[in-house]
């Protein structure tokens, strides 16, 4: 039996599950040479959950073949580069925190009172036991550089008027996907689905959005569900209980000191 498991391999097996941003904040405006409408759509989607700054309370439910896990978390974000998530429930994981600054991720572990940085070898590992990987958190920072997007369908599908945006990774972008397709409802511009394909055109995972509610004049989906295609019985669902935009948050809020202090 081969015992030579690099941590990465196992992390990868645990969360072989494919990458997507923790919050679907990854879909940012591609700046160049795209139709104005695409630009607008993506900017709109970006603003949906984040605004300039945001503070939210959310519940994450992870269903796997092996365990079911529900966590209540508080999350703060500032732009695309800063975010901080602190677990409130269950008691066992209370105060476990994740800080993301640009492409770096740290975890604060209250039990041992230590901050550990996620090394490159663990980037493909699961984040908090969910189907999101640590890398998904990081990738949102580089989305606009990595993809070229365009509207590829406009009209009725499945009884709904939709826009379909196809984001193709730039040839040299360090992205594993072959393409990403996002569907929006035409009138409210609320996102419906994000589909992630490999290079062969095989669907690898699906993210669905629903339970939209109007916040600050925008129809914002309050529930999102990530579904890996190779494990139909598994999923990760995030439900926003509360979300506030444009709360005052300085960059210094997202610091290692604060990570340890915010218990």
């Amino acid at each position: 039996m081969k015992r030579d498991w690099a941590a990465a391999d196992v992390a990868a097996t645990g969360g072989k599950l494919l990458k997507l941003a923790l919050l679907p904040l990854c879909l940012l405006a591609p700046v160049t040479a795209v139709a104005l409408e695409v630009d607008e759509l993506i900017r709109h989607m970006d603003k949906l959950w984040r605004g300039n700054t945001s503070a939210a309370v959310m519940t994450m439910t992870v269903n796997t073949r092996r365990y079911q896990r529900t966590m209540t978390m508080e999350a703060w974000s500032r732009g695309k580069d800063y975010s901080l998530v602190v677990v409130r429930k269950p008691i066992k994981d209370k105060d476990v925190a994740t800080l993301k600054v640009e492409e770096n991720i740290w975890n604060y572990l209250p039990k041992i009172n230590r901050v550990t940085k996620i090394p490159a070898s663990m980037m493909s590992g699961s984040w908090m036991g969910s189907h999101f990987t640590n890398d998904d958190l990081v990738k949102e920072s580089t989305f606009e550089d990595d993809y070229a997007s365009s509207i590829t369908f406009e009209g009725e599908r499945g009884g709904q008027a939709i826009y379909e945006i196809t984001a193709i990774p730039n040839p040299d972008a360090a992205v594993v996907w072959g393409k990403v397709i996002i569907n929006f409802e035409q009138t409210s511009l609320a996102p419906l689905q994000a589909l992630y394909f490999d290079e062969e055109g095989l669907l690898v995972r699906t993210m669905t959005f629903d339970q939209a509610r109007e916040i600050d004049g925008r129809l914002t989906p309050m529930r999102m569900r990530l579904q890996p295609e190779d494990k139909p019985e598994e999923s990760t669902t995030i439900i926003y209980e509360k979300i506030d935009f444009d709360v005052p948050l300085e960059a210094s809020f997202f610091s290692l000191q604060n990570l340890k202090r915010r218990r």
Binding site: A11, G14, G15, V96, S126, G129
Partner: peptide, 8 residues
Amino acid sequence: TQAADGSI
């Protein structure tokens, strides 16, 4: 590590 119940 990732524990069996999904926690860290």
